[in-house]
Write a protein that binds this DNA or RNA. Structure first.
Lengths: 350, 350
DNA sequence: ACCTAGCACTCCTCGCCTGCGATTGCTAAG
DNA sequence: CTTAGCAATCGCAGGCGAGGAGTGCTAGGT
């Protein structure tokens, strides 16, 4: 092996590996040495290619389903392909515009915008797309309103810069009048204005409540509302495009799909799988066993964070067979996330 | 045929038909005459049963997949079974309690309660469960709050007896102060209190706005908020349990599932299919072609409305193979809907 | 008039085999 | 280091036949 070449592979091996991956992604059939020489003018004979293929298999980049079959990429093969061999794609201006337009037409509601983006990505990628709902942690506090419903019940609404974050009903042990709730709302608003949600301390609340001489139970009411605003529905997912997976030849067998659908419906596992990509700068790929879940050996996931202002608040992902068009899906996911990010920022409540 | 007997079938034919359906539901295998005589002590020989089976086939209740196979029920066979032959089931007290408890633990948020009920029903029924989100039309108005965010932006929140129904952001052409919004909120609340949402007229709003001498654009702002409160997310569905369908032997073939997943994700078709069961008193069943959708020939749906107070506000359904345990699923769906209804009513904002 | 034993007939299913084609690895020569 | 040639391996599709499941019909019994 020539040192200094990508992945410790000499140039020809790298090219052959890349070609095998491209070809397998396109056809879903094991790739034979002859196919390579015929379709790709390698300038060498199939026998030479066979020698190279054998080396690549020894190196762990390829596997053979059975003796008299061609080669298919291993997880390591895909990994090398993604990291070093493939040509990254970027979206055509036209595609970019289509995505942007479609998201613009979506409702103003936060959840629905996220769901639209997920549906869109599912449709464009022809795979299963999913998104985490945003964490509100890094959002800015805009308004807290206590609504009087009856002497002992009310509702607290927290508005953040992204729109309504949470409503929570409360019950009081002692009667309170509408005026008290209004006064308390006002006091809190002037005290908390423009803080980030995560920076609001219990002492801020306590000060406001005590200053007005109100019952201590209000502190709990407000903390509860803020807490639920902060956590949002963070661990729930939006998903779309499961039926696309049924089109893939490798999932004609229903058993493989069962586990996936299960995982998608459970949401928890899926959330954990992508959670660590929240801090990524751009699209990240996890391939087969890298996902660390037995039932997902045959799948890969592309994940890209979306932002509100500066901070990443959630992830947009595509789940498909390992044999997925990585460059294209990374471009699509990135493009969609980018549009989503700017769509969210446009809707910011200043 | 003896007149006066169920479905125009004499007693023995009815019993044999019922037995074929039971057996086929249990085994997913065509039912043979000998199986019937061996398992069910009919008191006659298999030859006699064969004659009866031939009659039932002539009558359209059964079909034969091929000459040397047993019989399986036709849509008409299932229909007769459901309407006249099967023993209706009711839930054990223990099951009933489990459902109630599980729903009680669910969050207070309306959407999440519905989703919990759907997940629960999916799990218990071992099929695909789905629910329509409630229509707010028949809910009672409790509170409208206009929140001041900046001189020209604000948010309108409408609270109904079921909890928050809608929030909507608005922009004004002319500056307004927090006081105006508060005064308008108060005026509207005293005027609209305890009306049903659908009974609120534009003139009520206009009167309040004009009385306070406020800009006409407030009328639109408020009407928009009320409209969005009324419509809710009515046509979106919650669904759970798709992977259960993959366990059914008849759907090992991925093609049949594709159409179903598609339909479930589309939601629209599914919503239309069950919409007319909203006025039903109890569980309704649609079998195979009765659904009127080609791709759903192999499926049946059990639908039961759930209520808030007196009025039906949504539907809870189970979708599965035609070969589903109708009595059990009807009992499960009814029980879950009942618990859901009372759970919702308990959470009413009085 | 109804029931039933017996039997021929039909049709599906499964395992077995075979031949074909695809593809490889190896060898030996350039 | 490359390549042509070739034997060897393996999967797969198709054909064939045995086995079995189940029916419909017939004829005789109650």
């Amino acid at each position: 092996m020539n040192p200094g070449s990508p992945g410790g592979l000499d140039k020809r091996k790298a090219y052959i590996l890349a070609t095998v991956v491209y070809e397998y992604i396109a056809t879903a059939e094991p790739v034979a040495s002859q196919t390579l020489t015929q379709k790709y003018r390698l300038g060498v004979s199939s026998a030479t290619v066979r020698n190279e293929l054998a080396d690549l298999e020894a190196g762990g980049y390829l596997v053979q389903p059975h003796t008299s079959a061609g080669r298919i990429p291993s997880d390591a093969g895909y990994r090398t392909f993604v990291d070093q061999l493939m040509h990254p794609e970027t979206l055509q201006a036209a595609d970019r515009r289509r995505i942007r337009d479609e998201l613009r037409d979506a409702s103003r509601e936060l959840d629905e915008v996220i769901e639209s983006a997920t549906r869109l990505l599912g449709r464009l990628s022809k795979n299963l797309a999913f998104a985490t709902k945003p964490s509100n942690d890094a959002q800015t506090f805009r308004h807290l309103q206590l609504i009087w419903l009856s002497a002992r019940t009310g509702m607290a609404i927290v508005v953040t810069s992204m729109g309504v974050a949470a409503q929570s009903l409360f019950e009081l042990a002692a009667d309170a009048g509408p005026d008290e709730l209004t006064r308390l709302s006002n006091a809190l608003n002037s005290r908390l204005g423009n803080k980030m949600l995560r920076d609001i301390r219990e002492s801020d609340i306590a000060a406001a409540v005590d200053q007005l001489g109100l019952a201590g139970e209000f502190k709990n009411v407000i903390m509860t509302a803020l807490r639920s605003a902060r956590s949002g529905e963070q661990s729930t997912l939006a998903a779309s495009g499961a039926q696309n997976l049924l089109d893939q030849p490798e999932f004609q067998d229903a058993r493989k799909l069962r586990s996936i659908l299960n995982i998608v419906e459970e949401q928890k596992t899926l959330y954990d799988l992508v959670a660590d990509s929240m801090t990524a700068e751009s699209a990240e790929v996890k391939i087969g066993h890298e996902l660390g879940v037995d039932e997902m050996q045959d799948f890969s996931i592309v994940t890209v964070p979306y932002r509100f202002g500066e901070s990443a608040i959630g992830m947009l992902s595509v789940l498909g067979p390992r044999r997925m068009p990585y460059a294209r899906l990374m471009a699509l996911a990135s493009g969609t996330a980018e549009s989503l990010s700017s769509r969210l920022s446009d809707a910011e409540i200043k």
